[in-house]
Nucleic acid binder design. Structure first.
Lengths: 190, 190
DNA sequence: CCAGGACGCAACGGTTGCGTTCCGGCGCTC
DNA sequence: GAGCGCCGGAACGCAACCGTTGCGTCCTGG
């Protein structure tokens, strides 16, 4: 019976407000103001700020990051990096994600939600890509998928979300070459 | 004429409060309470929250991250990674750094301070290490120092500050091997 | 046509924090 | 031993937000 357009306006307002002031400073009143909605409408849907944010954010996060399968590891890797870099350059995402990551460090419920919404999926993607590469013989058998994920996503995240330096196609290509090089000899320590 | 022990207590309280609630929720009153100090003592030293936090944080940040010079690139890299991983595993630092990074995305003054206190120095260290390795012939001449810094620090930061998975010595060694592999063939795209 | 529910709006009392002011106490230095 | 300046503490007026409530309106289904 809740009106869908109102719910959508609230969801939208939460994402924007989250991007502008962060979770710590997010207030229900500001969300209502921004959505052009009474506070009542919000409390009718969620019982508090945390629950609201978690539900909305994970709903958004769950529809993203496909499984690349281009036939070669280099192709998979470049596609994955391209997608992730696009996502991390999105105005709202690039504000919200680091903010919630930081918040997760002190709020276990946020940590758990983020873990489920992002990390688990990332690990699955990484394992699949690496696994395919190993069966194709492109990577050594002992390749550590965990390490691979860190190498694939770490530098991207670092550059886009932390140091916030712009990225171009050349950089992305250099990076993917570097990661391939890393994984080829990044197996068990010699 | 300001008492030094009071100043120290405030600095300490700010760091701890920052770690617990983050910049967004940091309040002068809480800092004063924690330091066992009157608000007056704080306003006598800094004129507002932002100025206080920036001064205190950059004072702490400036005394860190030495220049490794072990004689080999592998040695430099492992030492650097060891130091950084220790720093990022420090209870307070691991909370404050991601928090301020996220805050920097929406506050230019924080961004500028962090840039000066951390990133600039990191880049200098990276350039020095890579430069030494190139003159020694351990890395190809065209090696991109920018990319190198991203590869050295990105995965570490990702793992310790974002996914918050524990790290052991083996992992660190694998990672450094991988990074060396990456840089050896991460030059200009073929 | 009517009942019911979701809507916005405004207001409630209570809490928190801001930045400022004034106080009396304490420890310097001269 | 007088005076100066920092100290903690308390209170100030102001603003924001909390979560709740009551009001009147509008839309919808029966």
């Amino acid at each position: 019976m809740l009106r869908g357009d109102i719910t959508a306006a609230i969801r939208n307002a939460v994402m924007n407000e989250l991007a502008e002031v962060g979770y710590g400073r997010l207030s229900i009143e500001a969300v209502a103001r921004r959505a052009g909605v009474g506070k009542t409408a919000i409390y009718r849907r969620w019982s508090n700020k945390l629950e609201m944010v978690l539900e909305i954010v994970s709903a958004v996060a769950e529809r993203s990051v496909p499984m690349p399968d281009t036939g070669s590891f280099a192709g998979d890797l470049q596609l994955l990096m391209f997608i992730v870099s696009k996502a991390l350059q999105h105005r709202i995402a690039s504000q919200i994600i680091p903010d919630l990551m930081a918040e997760a460090a002190r709020n276990p419920k946020i940590a758990e939600t983020l873990q489920r919404a992002l990390r688990t999926h990332q690990l699955a993607v990484g394992e699949k890509i690496v696994g395919q590469a190993v069966t194709r013989g492109e990577l050594p058998a002992g390749t550590n998928a965990d390490l691979a994920v860190d190498l694939m996503l770490g530098p991207l995240y670092w550059r886009l979300a932390v140091s916030r330096t712009p990225i171009d196609d050349d950089y992305l290509e250099n990076l993917s070459h570097a990661v391939i090089g890393a994984l080829r000899q990044g197996g068990p320590a010699t």
